[in-house]
Simulated assay, not measured.
Amino acid sequence: MKELAVIDVDVWADVRCPWCWIGLRRLPRTTTELGEPVRLRRRSFLLEPRGPVSPGQPTAAVATSEWGMTIAQWESKSQRIRAEGRGEGLDINVDGALMFDSSPLHRLLKLVAAAKPSRAGAAWDAAFVAHFGRTENLGDWDVLRSMAAVWGLDPAGVERALVGESFAEDVARDLADAQRLQVNSVPTIVARDGSQISGTASAGELVRFLTGAGSIR
């Protein structure tokens, strides 16, 4: 039997980023157009490494106060995000999504990838749903504990991840690699040869990129 080639790519993303949810939904759909399987590794990126100035506040309020955007500018941006999301079957409440420090969540997602690798993608998607769908406060560790229980994670392991006793180095390594590769915005897809493309590129652009990225055996 002929061995299938595999295209390896890394995707840097942050759960706080609506474009990352869009990109991580679009990419798997796009890969069905290829004749080769794609192995996707999700890498952590922190939009605000030190955490937000106003945790727990709705994004729309922060955008028009701290980010210096006018109401009209934010509404235009919000409408574009929601429209792109609908194109991928997503209902993104970017206005009501609450600001939070995503570091503990990224450590939990690393735990999922280590303990239950087949569920890693579903865990990322569930986190996006909680943040942009239900606008839950993912800065609340009790909320994170509830999510982790649904994912079937060991409670003791969850606590170690939350306080940073485990997987902090893994997240830090992702951030260092992003800096080394000059990944400055997310979602960004990086192939094994170092070539990059925005995760929000069109389906056709993604297919061409993946085809040119080459494969390994």
Rank of each mutant, 00 (worst) to 15 (best):
S202V: 06
G139P: 06
V143Y: 10
T200K: 05
A172Y: 07
R192H: 08
E136C: 08
V158L: 00
V207Y: 05
A156T: 05
F167Q: 02
P117T: 05
D174K: 05
V183P: 02
Q182W: 12
R134G: 06
G164Y: 12
D140K: 06
V190P: 02
W151P: 00
S202N: 09
Q179V: 13
F132R: 03
Q182R: 13
L210V: 05
V163D: 15
A127Q: 09
S146H: 10
L162F: 09
D154P: 03
G121P: 06
A126G: 10
E136Y: 01
M147G: 13
K116V: 02
L206T: 01
W141S: 12
I197P: 00
V143A: 10
A176S: 04
R192P: 03
A191T: 05
A156G: 06
Q179G: 09
A130C: 06
L206Y: 02
V163M: 03
D170E: 15
A176H: 13
Q179S: 14
V186Q: 01
A176Q: 08
L210P: 08
A168K: 12
F209I: 12
E136S: 12
S198M: 07
T188A: 04
R208H: 07
A114L: 01
G133K: 11
A201P: 09
S198C: 04
V112L: 02
D174S: 11
P187E: 03
V129N: 07
E205C: 09
A127V: 01
A120T: 13
R160Q: 02
A149G: 12
R173W: 12
G152F: 07
N137W: 13
V186I: 11
F128I: 04
T211V: 07
